[in-house]
Nucleic acid binder design. Structure first.
Length: 517
DNA sequence: CTGTGCAAG
DNA sequence: AATTCTTGCACAG
């Protein structure tokens, strides 16, 4: 099937978008995050204009400062000119912010297990399950909390009959509860967007700031997207895609909606072309993806110029120490290292922003903790040579980056599985918060551990696949963290049971109880 | 599995 | 009004 012209694709775009969406997504965005954290940590700052300084830049500031004319990403110099009594707080150490970010994530998780963190100050929450439960319990649809995008005359011109608006109204009160909770427990204020997908939720939430929330009905989705004005304002269209779009004359949202799909395919590839076309109509099928532990841990350091191996080795050591520290704190053990370099070779005016990387698996085998750093430095230097010193050419390097991946929980079933069962007996629901929260524990026939078969696509795809060697039924009942542990142990062959040899009366491995017979 | 490119905050 | 830094995902060989 060749799609020669754009008519075909446009026909498939429903006039009212998201009609078939049964999800309810909340996007939570903390108001001027760094500034808020500083004010919470130091109440003396309350009522005063404060700015967060990194290097010579005011990266963000509180709303008092904004009223006085201070803007985000302003130089310290001009910020002080505009607002001489601006209080500057150094925000180069992100520790405090990471900690608060984690607390916020945990707090939001009490409303739904489907929380996705985006940066330090944003989260998506899929509350479809909770809403459906509430409705099935005969919860009365409350009045909408906060702002409703569009429909400014207060009248809903063309109410949708599919039930989405009722669910969104409930979503708005759930969002209100989340914001109240963040305020009372952490002192944090934020904005929220409530919609049927991530795209609309994020954009809607940004329409009323600060400390407000906004719901968008699918009937207003097209209008909301159009209000972004330009295509590059769509989340998912970055600078590179925006440039390519510009080359084919696509700047506005409207132009993106109208552009010939075949041409778009040629410019961006079919998949991306289709995706951003969908975005332009407010359609976004992306699921809220649970944020797990990081998949990689790394650091990189840029500098003016380095030309000698010994300099590189020095920088490498320093950098490695930093990363190793992070890895140690994480607790897991990586199986591969990756080295990134940025080479600069002054060719005719080219920016040569060229980064290259090489990775290799690492064998922690018999290396003591004291041994470890030097050992890895050598590995890294080998990788380095693969990239820059293979030929005798002159080289200059302006960046080194080290990243570890393949992080695996240190395989000691004592500290994970056993501990889990120990704690588990006490209370199943403890990590589910105050009952009023979302009332997902109401029927109590099944707890949250096994998100029971819902027809909600969002949770379906979050299901982990059961490794061959385990009983799928049992597996499906296990909580997610245990599922993951079983998967990784299956994958790595940790504790392989030889045909269930009952002879081993050793510290019986709990894994065996989950295996198929 | 490797390496590159893009996006986001 | 950025640029840098960190992470994750998609693509391709």
């Amino acid at each position: 099937m060749e799609e020669e012209d754009d008519l075909t694709d446009n026909v498939t775009v429903p006039s009212t978008t998201a009609k078939h969406e049964n999800r309810i997504i909340v996007h939570v965005d903390i108001d001027c995050f760094y500034a808020q954290v500083e004010m919470i940590l130091n109440p003396l700052l309350n009522g005063k204009p404060i700015g967060i300084q990194q290097k010579n830049i005011v990266v963000t500031c509180n709303y008092i400062a904004r009223e006085l004319g201070v803007q985000k990403l302003m130089s310290v110099k001009s910020a002080k000119e505009i607002c001489p009594n601006l209080i500057l707080v150094n925000g180069e150490d992100l520790k405090k912010y990471r900690e608060m970010s984690e607390k916020i994530y945990q707090a939001l998780q009490t409303f739904s297990p489907l929380v996705e963190k985006l940066g330090l100050d944003e989260n998506y929450i899929d509350v479809t399950e909770q809403i459906i439960n509430n409705l099935s319990e005969g919860a009365t649809t409350k009045t909408l909390m906060g702002n409703l995008y569009g429909e400014t005359d207060g009248k809903n011109q063309n109410p949708c009959t599919c039930g989405c608006e009722e669910r969104l109204v409930m979503g708005s009160s759930l969002a209100q509860e989340m914001r109240n909770h963040l305020k009372s427990e952490l002192g944090i204020t934020c904005c929220a967007g409530i919609a049927t997908n991530k795209l609309l939720a994020k954009i809607a939430g940004a329409t009323h700031k600060p400390n407000q929330q906004t719901t968008v009905f699918p009937s207003s989705a097209l209008e909301l997207i159009a209000s972004l004005k330009t295509a590059k304002n769509l989340p998912g269209i970055g600078s590179c895609t925006a440039n390519k779009l510009e080359e084919i004359g696509v700047i506005s949202i409207e132009a993106l909606r109208q552009v010939n799909i075949a041409q778009l395919n040629r410019t961006l590839g079919a998949k991306l072309a289709h995706h951003i076309k969908q975005l332009s109509y407010g359609i976004d099928e992306n699921l809220v993806k649970i944020t797990d532990k990081p998949k990689s841990i790394g650091a990189e350091d840029g500098f003016p110029i380095v030309r000698t191996i010994s300099e590189v080795r020095e920088k490498m050591k320093t950098l490695l120490n930093r990363v190793l520290d992070l890895v140690t704190r994480d607790g897991r053990r990586p199986s591969t290292v990756k080295l990134t370099v940025r080479k600069v070779f002054h060719q005719q005016g080219s920016k040569s922003n060229l980064r290259e990387c090489r990775q290799t698996s690492i064998d922690w085998g018999s290396s003591s903790t004291t041994d470890r750093p030097t050992k890895i430095v050598n590995v890294l230097m080998t990788l380095f040579e693969k990239m820059v010193t293979t030929d005798g050419r002159v080289w200059q390097v302006t960046l080194l980056g080290i990243s570890f991946s393949g992080l695996q929980a240190k395989a000691d079933s004592k500290n994970s599985l056993l501990k889990y069962f120990g704690a588990r007996q006490n209370d199943d629901t403890q990590q589910l918060p105050p009952a009023k929260r979302a009332r997902i524990d109401e029927p109590s026939s099944s707890n949250n551990a096994s998100l029971p078969m819902s027809n909600c696509s969002s949770s379906d795809q979050q299901m982990l696949t059961c490794p061959k060697e385990f009983d799928p039924t049992v597996f499906s009942q296990l909580p997610r963290d245990i599922q993951m542990e079983l998967i990784s142990s299956a994958a790595t062959g940790v504790s392989p049971q030889k045909k269930a040899s009952p002879t081993s009366n050793k510290p019986r491995n709990l894994l065996q109880y989950f295996r198929k017979l």
